[in-house]
């Protein structure tokens, strides 16, 4: 009888304890989401075109050090870009043309186009094709959490993001964003199993009108030690680019 009473009392206490547990308060990420929106907005050339020259230095354990020079043309209003490779000589004239959701690769040696994806690596470097367009943090990711910390001399938010679809190269991203100026200084990109795949460092920026773009980027391959790609941006222009530049016909013609 005593045993029964004890059991009943324990059961009641359990229910009461359960009732008193305070539900975890959903964290308010609105200010972080606002940061992501600002990051996206300040990376987009809304009213102008944008062109530049990308110099890429690829360090690879197998191949050694290689240098690539790429002409970049962007029209963010319309989601278009063209990347035209100028060096090395064996890849000269190869191009990547983004038309909305379609990314085409052009091989001048066969004069053929083939579909590719923004998620793929760019020409065997540690950059992804998606690195050459504007940011889409607010639309492609949701905030999972954040911390406050420092990186070097800078106070930063360390923001954990989770992809909301499979259009981005990595499903999980961690951003180090300066608190007072919304600059991404560092990124860590993870696989589905949360394995660190790539680290991105952005030590130099420039401002063109209202747009802030990194002019120096370093991507470190976290799978193969020693593999790294540094990209510097030069010959920046916001002059109008003719419409025909963002066409397949242009890439074919410029290769003749």
């Amino acid at each position: 009888m005593n045993k029964m009473r004890f059991l009943s009392a324990a059961l009641v206490l359990c229910f009461l304890a359960a009732g008193f547990v305070v539900p975890a308060k959903a964290q308010d990420f609105s200010h972080i989401e606002a940061i992501l929106e600002r990051l996206d907005r300040q990376s987009r050339f809304e009213n102008t075109d944008f062109s530049s020259v990308l110099t890429m230095v690829v360090e690879d354990q197998e191949k050694g050090i290689e240098k690539m020079v790429v002409r970049q043309f962007r029209r963010d209003d319309g989601e278009r870009f063209l990347l035209l490779i100028q060096e090395p000589i064996t890849e000269k004239g190869q191009g990547y043309l983004l038309e909305g959701d379609n990314l085409w690769f052009y091989d001048p040696s066969s004069r053929q186009f083939a579909h590719t994806s923004l998620k793929e690596t760019f020409q065997g470097s540690d950059a992804r094709n998606a690195d050459f367009g504007s940011n889409s943090y607010s639309s492609s990711y949701e905030v999972e959490g954040y911390l406050e910390g420092t990186l070097g001399n800078f106070e930063v938010y360390i923001i954990d993001l989770k992809a909301v679809d499979d259009t981005v190269p990595f499903p999980f991203v961690k951003l180090w964003v300066t608190k007072d100026s919304d600059l991404v200084l560092k990124t860590e990109e993870y696989s589905l199993t949360y394995r660190l795949m790539r680290t991105g460092l952005y030590p130099k920026y420039t401002k063109v009108g209202n747009v802030v773009i990194p002019v120096q980027m370093i991507f470190v391959d976290e799978l193969v030690e020693g593999n790294k790609t540094q990209i510097s941006v030069s010959e920046i222009s916001v002059n109008d680019i003719p419409d025909h530049v963002f066409t397949k016909a242009y890439i074919e013609r410029v290769n003749r």
Binding site: L151, G152, N153, F154, T178, D180, S181, L183, L185, L201, P203, K204, Y205, T206, K207, V208, V215, Q216, V233, S234, E235, I236, S237, V238, N239
Partner: peptide, 18 residues
């Protein structure tokens, strides 16, 4: 890498816009 920059301004490079 980020220690070497004294202030936020140092993060911005003077790039010539054509």
């Amino acid at each position: 890498l980020f220690d070497s920059f004294g202030s936020l301004d140092a993060l911005f490079a003077p790039v010539e816009v054509e």
